[in-house]
Design a binder for these strands. Structure first.
Lengths: 201, 201, 201, 201
DNA sequence: AATGAATGAGAGTTCATTCAT
DNA sequence: AATGAATGAACTCTCATTCAT
């Protein structure tokens, strides 16, 4: 039994090795420069080897995608302990935005790039994303019930809320604002602050 | 005299023909599949012919880009006549979102795709985008001054506002919501409605 | 009659116009950047127009080639009045080398580039070159007869002599020496000087 | 162990295969017709395969270039044992010229073609050529010191000497003489002979 | 388990040239 | 006389992927 387990452990270690390399390339050189060959060069294996661990390039991207959602979800669960619904909502937004700013390459993969997303929606594997969205809806519902924000259709409010934070990250990632690098997070937090302030009943 | 005019008309028609083909490819096959050759195939001309009308691929993308901004700006100017500041702000949002939903391929080119954006920001040609953003800031300032929305830093409020609508369009374009095609616009308008309702002082 | 003549004059003026443009491009941008389109751009005519005056690109190069020989021949005839055979030989060498250094692009066309030369030898149009070569042989024969240089096979001596000066120009044109631009001519003259000094009986 | 060696041998055989094909194309079709595709066609491999063995086209040309210098240098070292300085100089010339006549395609690559030369001088990789030139200068200096040829500036004399032999080869390669193929070498040797005879003090 | 070798398909671009007008 | 419009053929190079070993 030990042998099989060891083999499996080794296999998954190698997978992780490849994923790390891919993600690094991603960060350092941008999406369009991530190629199988480049990944292989980076880990000092041959391109063919990668195909022993992943069916094709898409599978690599998809796996990274899922890992990204794991990371985001962890961040969001961490603030779920906050008891005040409105504050929790705010922290939720802050966590989301800071995740996006700190991990722009993951964010891109998860929410912006057309290729991987298409694959994922097709594969009905969006479940990992839905989990996070459900958390958001719960928080909104809670805040509405506690009369902290105006009542309304939860689905729509959640969509709006998500749009807001997704918009912040998207604009920043694409450098569509002229905020200097270091003031991105503070500016975003200020925007969230203003928004939460106005929404408060 | 008529001859010159006809030639010019034909030339610009051909240009438009190429642009249309490029845009169609865009919609149908996604950005990474838009190549000079594919465009040429589509219009049943040789690849070399395209270079008679556009300097290179970037010029095609850039032209589409500018045309997109033209379209958006026109939509926004149309609602600028609204005298009530808050309502104007709302209409502004609605116009933006409906532009994005109606012209997803333009929107993608203008605000989502990495390639062209880099070229454009470099080329200091972002001016067409700024024009729209300035309109937004004016409207917000006006609404603040008229005490219709909470006072605050205009820059930040504008960033938040833009994030909100940009987020809506981005999510819809990437099919990250499960709203059926036909209910996208109504859902978006509802979200804007809820948002404008909460922001109102 | 006048009309026909005028037409012909205009035709040959246009030909010269094209040739000048080609040669300029040659000088300014190097051989590989001389294209029909570039020539056309330069003279502000369409590429097709050029084909009204020249059968194809090769004919342009060939014509320039002949013009180069004309220039060289003129230079050589100018020193032919020198009565001392040895001195005449020296001046011959100097004229050749200075022609090459002053008109590197012509020289290239005439003696270095494979394409045009192949065409020319095929077309048996080398006559213009032979004329210059014959002058050289005469001068050598004269110097031998006057006992100014060692007697020997005139054909061989002429070949050696030509090789010497051709070698000088070729090396300089290809920047195979590290002499700075301005000292090329003096260095070449010194080399000729040394050579003529040693050859003197 | 044998496996690795065999693989390496095969790899270098393939490299040589490509180089040979390139060189053949060179000879048969001239420089401007040497393209990656043509090489690939010739060896009946796909163009992409070539990139497994050479980084790019320049590397192929550069490799051929260096091989040429290796060949030339070997020939020159072989006659360096000659003790008489003047005779050594003569043999030097003969070796150079016979190298050029026997390997016209190498010679062209090394000393005549514009493209590769530019790359090489830039890359400061001209060292292989300088090695040969230094040998020449030594020989000339030696002959001057031994009073076998007229004293003078070594640099200039070397330049003149090199020009002479380079000129011979260049003229022959470009078929600018009408010597029949088989009498090229003898004619060249005769020319060297005459030249060495006249230079002798 | 790992890989060296190979490739088809495709990218953007430039060229000399033709021909109807 | 001049040209606008068009093109086929070529260029270098990169990619994801396969397969025998």
């Amino acid at each position: 039994m030990g042998i099989i387990e060891r083999k499996e452990r080794e296999k998954s270690e190698m997978k992780q090795f490849i994923l790390d390399a891919a993600m690094n390339l991603f960060i350092e050189e941008g999406f369009e420069n991530v190629s199988i060959r480049r990944i292989a060069d980076k880990i000092e294996y041959s391109p063919a080897t990668i195909y022993l661990y992943f069916k094709d390039k898409d599978e690599i991207l998809f796996t990274l995608h899922v890992a990204g959602f794991e990371l985001l979800h962890k961040k969001q669960k961490a603030i779920q302990s906050e008891s005040d619904a409105l504050l929790r909502l705010k922290k939720h937004a802050e966590a989301y935005v800071s995740f996006g700013i700190e991990n722009p390459e993951y964010y891109q993969l998860m929410f912006i790039m057309p290729g991987p997303i298409a694959k994922i929606t097709m594969a009905n594997e969006w479940s990992c994303g839905i989990r996070s969205y459900d958390l958001l809806k719960e928080n909104i519902k809670d805040a509405m019930e506690k009369n902290q924000i105006p009542k309304g259709d939860v689905e729509i409010a959640a969509f709006g809320f998500w749009s807001f934070v997704h918009g912040i990250v998207s604009l920043l990632i694409r450098h569509l604002t002229f905020f200097p690098q270091e003031s991105r997070l503070p500016m975003s937090l200020s925007a969230i602050d203003y928004f939460m302030h106005t929404i408060k009943k």
